[in-house]
Amino acid sequence: MSMRTVAALYVQSDGCYAGLAGVDAWGIERDARTYAGPHPVIAHPPCERWGRYWHGSPRKPHQYQKGDDGGCFAAALASVRRWGGVIEHPAYSNAWSAFDLLAPPSSGGWVVADWDGGWTCHVEQGHYGHMARKATWLYAAGVHLSDLPSLRWGSSGQRLPAVALERYGYEKARRTGVMAYVGGKDKSKIRAATPIPFRDLLLSIARSALTSPAAAPATAAE
């Protein structure tokens, strides 16, 4: 049986999806907003304008408008609803309320996200190898609840930077977090990277999507 192809949208050109068998990777050189099928989708739309600092740096607030991502999240949501698959975004993303999606509980578990057959959950990528806890919200559509994987729910444990603990003590280390001490030219790439085990889970969700998800009825449970 041949492997079902998945389109990975808004991904790093040289990231964990690049060159992977059965994956059509859409890096920065391709405009993922134009994706027109026919494969199920994993989407990692830009999150800068949807997070805690959507307005810009705390030192220079109100540089940007909330949700001004050029229509990337809207296009990702439309693609997942049309072709089936999953969206990954930071936990507490303002995109959920902007697009009338219900927020999932931090304790974990898949819950109803909307009346379009969508499901959502809260999971920490620290369980799957990320150096930080990296709390994440997922939105899946075109997938039966019974086919969604049970993830490692709950907290993946506090991550404290050793250098900050040594120099400044526990309270500052807790406030700043481990990612604040990642330096070098690849720091943004390291922060954004998806751990391989987590990538594989997302691939399994996308590959379990119905052949014609747009025609599937919305149900509260399976």
Rank of each mutant, 00 (worst) to 15 (best):
G126V: 09
D200L: 05
D31C: 10
H55F: 15
G129L: 14
V86M: 10
V112I: 08
T120H: 02
A135R: 15
A25G: 08
L77C: 02
C121F: 06
D147S: 12
V23N: 10
F73V: 11
P104F: 11
G67K: 11
G184I: 13
L160Y: 07
M1Q: 10
E222D: 15
V143Y: 07
S107C: 02
R30H: 12
G67L: 13
A206W: 12
A214P: 01
V80W: 07
A32C: 06
F99T: 01
R159W: 11
V80D: 03
P149T: 06
H55I: 00
A180M: 06
G108M: 04
V41K: 12
V41G: 06
D114R: 12
G177M: 10
C16I: 15
Q12W: 11
C47T: 04
C121Q: 02
F73P: 01
A214Q: 10
E166C: 09
Y168E: 12
R4C: 10
P149Q: 10
D114S: 14
W96V: 01
A192W: 10
D116L: 07
S79G: 13
S57P: 01
G109I: 02
W96E: 00
I28E: 14
P104E: 06
G37H: 09
S107D: 09
A75K: 06
G129R: 09
R199K: 15
S212W: 01
V6S: 03
A21V: 03
G169P: 11
S156T: 05
K134W: 13
S79N: 15
V86A: 07
W50S: 02
I190M: 09
A8F: 10
G85E: 08
R81V: 02
H130R: 06
V111I: 15
D186Q: 15
L165E: 11
V182S: 01
L151V: 00
S93W: 03
Q12E: 15
D31W: 15
L20W: 03
L101S: 03
G169S: 08
G84W: 10
Q12A: 15
A75Q: 04
E222C: 14
I196Q: 04
A8E: 04
G51Q: 07
H130Y: 13
A180E: 10
G19L: 12
K187Q: 14
T219W: 14
G177T: 13
P197I: 05
G84V: 09
S150L: 02
W54N: 08
M131L: 14
S146W: 00
L160H: 02
R30W: 08
G108C: 05
R207T: 05
P197N: 05
A36K: 06
G22P: 04
V143M: 05
W26C: 04
S188T: 10
Y17Q: 01
P61C: 14
K172N: 00
G71R: 13
A164V: 07
C47K: 05
R152Y: 03
S212T: 11
G22R: 11
A43L: 09
V80K: 10
